[in-house]
């Protein structure tokens, strides 16, 4: 493999198959009008690498089960595991997680999982993060970790959101010393000075670390967004082995 891999955090049962385990909900907070931040206490949590997922499983009274995979929003240095779940009108799982779930409830979870779309300070940089909608969630974890680790790796975030009220992780995005470009695709205030519209090759050329600087590029968002951005990055000369993608389908937060 041409890119370095980090050691991924072990599951609750190290060296064995990964089992479902109960987690307790410590807090449920509105993140935006459509997204909810869940703070979970997961007994035996072995820690995660930024970018890894947590799988959540719900079981209905009739035994029917549905599971979903969510990127962990919190950094490994934070005391609890945080998810940011966007409510999808036709979803089987997200309406429950965002509207029914209460503090003190239990959820079945499995994780952390995934050792590919991850970044750790030891992997260096420069780091270029490109998010569409709720695709910013794994990058919130990476930015938190970068700061907690005192990393001096140069980092940039290009974040495409529909409008200012849809910005997820606004506190972290505002506080980070990484270079942030926010792109508004649907609606921008009259005073807005930043870019608007679709993220295209021109915008990527202007706001992304250039290929000469050999950045590690991570792209996360709805499938259409990620594929369009990844194609444009390759056209701009970014080598495919330095562009990692995570498509989450047609999910809300589409830009």
């Amino acid at each position: 493999m041409t890119t370095p891999t980090v050691t991924t955090a072990g599951p609750a049962r190290r060296g064995g198959r990964l089992l479902w385990t109960p987690a307790r909900v410590r807090s449920v907070q509105a993140e935006t009008a459509r997204a909810t931040r869940l703070v979970l206490e997961v007994p035996g949590w072995a820690g995660h690498v930024p970018g890894q997922h947590l799988d959540v499983r719900l079981t209905a009274p009739d035994g029917y089960r549905a599971k979903r995979s969510y990127s962990v929003a919190s950094g490994p240095e934070q005391p609890h595991v945080e998810l940011i779940v966007e409510r999808l009108p036709d979803g089987e799982v997200s309406p429950y997680l965002t509207q029914q779930l209460r503090v003190g409830d239990e959820l079945e979870v499995r994780g952390p999982v995934g050792g590919w779309f991850v970044w750790h300070a030891s992997l260096g940089g420069p780091l270029q993060l490109i998010a569409g909608g709720s695709g910013v969630v794994p990058f919130l974890s990476m930015l938190q970790h970068r700061e907690a680790a005192g990393s001096d790796v140069p980092a940039r975030l290009l974040y495409s959101a529909r409008a200012l009220p849809d910005v997820i992780g606004a506190d972290r995005v505002a506080a980070t010393d990484a270079g942030v470009t926010l792109v508004l695709t649907r609606q921008a205030p009259a005073t807005w000075q930043g870019p608007t519209g679709r993220v295209d090759a021109r915008l990527l050329h202007e706001h992304v670390v250039p290929p000469d600087a050999r950045p590690q590029v991570f792209v996360c968002g709805p499938t259409g967004f990620v594929e369009a951005v990844a194609d444009a990055l390759l056209e701009l000369g970014h080598p495919p082995e330095r562009v990692k993608t995570e498509r989450f389908g047609t999910g809300g937060g589409a830009t």
Partner: peptide, 21 residues
């Protein structure tokens, strides 16, 4: 990644990452 209305096979494509769990 989450339950949504399908918009054709292109939009249902995910990355192998999501098979990790």
């Amino acid at each position: 990644a989450d339950g949504t209305a399908d918009e054709g096979p292109e939009s249902r494509r995910l990355d192998g990452n999501a098979a990790a769990g």
